[in-house]
């Protein structure tokens, strides 16, 4: 009886207050969507770090004929210079974990494979690539050791640290992620204030009911429960829609498009959305309970 009565009261409240409920749902949805994007961008950075820091290498590009690197002076690296560099690298173990030689033809083939779906792959010519030593380090931070030994050495065009390239990318991703999270925080503030306003207004429009409930001796919980549940239900709907939107974004935007376009990068998938969803929804429920409890304490005398 009591449960049916309470559910009826909550249903009535939601029906009578449709416009406010819709606004709470939408604001919650947008804030949780942004928060979700921020969190997913963080996960993307983590995923890529895991993926890349295993593979990060220092590339020592050698000179090719008519090379544009100033150190090459237009001449290709001779086989003797190449053997010299190889030997020097082998000596540097254990700083150097592994060395392998990639020829111009191999580099070209790898590029063609990577960009087979992209017009870039068709435009590139073999001459745009250089022979290189791919050096993986035991500690990716020890790049300086390699750079100081090989930068400017005979036959070396350029020493390039992939980690530096990646760091730029990760910095960018972090900025995106934190921007999204900052916006989300603003929107959460917005959602909280809107919930509070909604409850204030509802409490005012139902002061007759609550006054009677108080007089006939209804418990505080009975009086406050419908208000709290209405907020919680609106918030859950909003957060649910946000997670659904986020799922769709990842499913069609990343898994369905980006992953196919950029094959050699690890991307987050829908599993990550499923992973963060319970936390986001749980957080929203707590927020709704806390906000409504606090507002009711101020605006609903019991």
């Amino acid at each position: 009886m009591r449960a049916t009565f309470m559910l009826g009261e909550i249903g009535n409240g939601l029906r009578r207050n449709v416009s406010m409920v819709v606004s709470v749902v939408l604001v919650t949805m947008i804030s949780m969507y942004l928060l979700g994007l921020g969190l997913l961008a963080q996960r993307q950075v983590d995923t890529m770090k895991d993926y890349w820091f295993d593979r990060v290498q220092v590339s020592i590009f050698l000179c090719v004929d008519k090379s544009l690197y100033p150190n090459c002076a237009g001449a290709a690296t001779t086989p003797a210079q190449r053997d010299q560099l190889q030997a020097q690298l082998e000596q540097m173990k254990p700083t150097v974990k592994d060395v392998y030689y990639e020829s111009q033809a191999q580099a070209y083939a790898r590029f063609k494979e990577q960009f087979k779906n992209s017009p870039l792959g068709d435009q590139a010519t073999e001459r745009a690539f250089a022979d290189s030593f791919r050096v993986s380090l035991n500690d990716p931070g020890k790049y300086d050791v390699i750079a100081s030994s090989f930068q400017g050495a005979p036959g070396v065009g350029k020493v390039q640290d992939q980690k530096q390239l990646l760091d730029k990318f990760f910095t960018f991703m972090n900025v995106v992620s934190w921007s999204a999270i900052s916006l989300a925080v603003l929107m959460v503030v917005c959602a909280t204030l809107l919930m509070a306003t909604t409850i204030r207004q509802t409490a005012f429009s139902r002061r007759r009911e609550t006054g009677i409930m108080r007089l006939v001796g209804a418990s505080n919980l009975t009086i406050q429960f419908p208000f709290i549940m209405e907020t919680v239900v609106s918030a859950i709907i909003g957060a649910g829609l946000a997670m659904w939107l986020l799922y769709a974004t990842v499913r069609y935007g990343i898994s369905g498009y980006l992953s196919n376009a950029l094959l050699d990068t690890a991307f987050i998938g829908t599993a990550d959305v499923v992973l963060i969803a319970p936390w986001v929804i749980g957080g929203v429920v707590l927020l709704a309970i806390f906000t409504s409890g606090f507002t009711l304490r101020r605006y609903l005398r019991v």
Partner: peptide, 14 residues
């Protein structure tokens, strides 16, 4: 009935 419902009385009592 409202006065009884909000103090949790059963439907049969109401």
């Amino acid at each position: 009935a409202f006065a009884l419902q909000v103090i949790g009385k059963s439907r049969s009592i109401i």
